[in-house]
Design a protein around this nucleic acid. Structure first.
Ligand SMILES: [Zn+2]
Ligand SMILES: [Zn+2]
Ligand SMILES: [Zn+2]
Ligand SMILES: [Zn+2]
Lengths: 138, 138
DNA sequence: CAAAAATTGAGACGGTGTCTCAATTGTGGC
DNA sequence: GCCACAATTGAGACACCGTCTCAATTTTTG
């Protein structure tokens, strides 16, 4: 959950204008929770700034990803969704009811180091996704 | 890389007919490598069985997923791709050139147990995705 | 062989992501 | 505050993808 002020400031600093359309998008990102997709951002953004168009949402998200402020991911759907760019992301998904639990503890650091070593990668973030059947669905 | 014979046999066993269209799809899956998407399966399948249609590819893949013989996943694209259903999947992706390394060693077993414990999940498989910059792109 | 059931391909459809273009808007210099 | 210019915008066109329907075909059953 990035701060409006923070995203806006970095956008400005990178040479982009702070237009109402962009501010609406940023506002949505700050207050709208995780895993938002373009359409959700558009719909919520139009409540703040009705003229907001689909193209602008796509363009603004492109910029935010380019600046590494947000990060796209896919959650078992053909829909691109966005999370703030820092750190890893960890999901526990029930394949029957679709429930998605987000958990924080991450034991992947060790593995990150190994991989960085072996393949010469600079690893920036990761997505761990575990899939199975939740308590209710068993 | 599942065996044609194996997929075909399980399909038959589950009560589905082994039609030329389905056999073409299965043939592609067996010989076509990992991470195939619907379109790739369609195009390759039409070389084996020219009448093969898009709808049938989608329907056949639905069945294979339903029977837990194949598993869908998304790799930083809005495109659903398929891998054989068993085990985990581990990717190292370069965010600059898109190169995807597949690695096998998995240190997630411990975490799997923890999660199963804490949330009561039966965990069936997982996808670990690490993203960063590869040697060439640094 | 006839009837019923399963499967198929073709095409229509709505939704999504991309692109173009003319109109609008924000900004720095005055 | 105003102007000129470049950046940004919204609307709409477009291609593509996944879904659905339906009539025709194929397979199974009696
Ligand atoms: Zn998440
Ligand atoms: Zn569940
Ligand atoms: Zn893979
Ligand atoms: Zn690279």
């Amino acid at each position: 959950m990035p701060h409006v002020a923070e995203l806006a400031h970095k956008l400005k600093k990178a040479g982009y204008k702070l237009t109402p359309a962009r501010l609406a998008v940023i506002d949505v990102l700050e207050s709208g929770g995780e895993h938002l997709c373009h359409n959700q951002i558009l719909e919520a953004g139009q409540k703040i700034y009705p003229k907001l168009s689909r193209a602008t949402v796509y363009r603004t998200m492109d910029i935010l990803v380019e600046l590494k402020l947000m990060r796209p991911l896919y959650l078992n759907e053909p829909t691109q969704r966005f999370v703030s760019a820092a750190g890893g992301h960890h999901h526990l998904v029930c394949t029957r009811c679709g429930q998605t639990i987000e958990f924080d503890d991450c034991t992947a650091n060790e593995l990150v180091d190994q991989l960085a070593d072996r393949y010469g990668f600079q690893i920036h973030h990761h997505l761990l996704e575990f899939r199975g059947v939740c308590v209710n669905c068993q």
